[in-house]
């Protein structure tokens, strides 16, 4: 049991981060506003979680301008995809073993 729990990724401890990753797994890239709407998080909350994921190297951020408005989009990196898969596998194994 302890072994299984050890594989739980600390970066995904918060539900919001796990949710962000699951959205980015199936979408090539997602804008800040689309994520905000989908996950119903506040600006500050979402930004904090996104920064944490970016610092772990799980998501890549790209900033462009659409006209004069800045448009920030997020995409999962290969490391992030792998980490997410591992985390899900650990979750699954944990549930199966109960």
């Amino acid at each position: 049991m302890i072994d299984l729990l050890a594989q739980f990724n600390k970066a995904f401890e918060s539900k919001a981060r796990l949710n962000i990753m699951s959205v980015l797994m199936v979408n090539d890239s997602m804008s800040f506003n689309a994520l905000k709407e989908l996950l119903s998080l506040t600006d500050g909350n979402l930004a904090t979680h996104l920064r944490a994921l970016e610092e772990s190297g799980y998501i890549a951020v790209s900033k462009q301008f659409v006209g004069r408005k800045p448009n920030t989009t997020y995409a999962a990196t290969d490391t992030g995809r792998q980490a997410f898969q591992d985390h899900l596998n650990a979750l699954e194994a944990f549930i199966k073993n109960l």
């Binding site: 796990l18 949710n19 699951s22 199936v26 997602m30 989908l38 979750l91 699954e92 944990f94």
Partner: peptide
């Protein structure tokens, strides 16, 4: 375990809803 199951359900629904 109930909590983890719920997490998995939520992930599944988000993946579908977002794509």
């Amino acid at each position: 375990s109930h909590e983890h199951l719920q997490t998995l359900t939520e992930i599944r629904s988000l993946m579908e809803r977002s794509s």
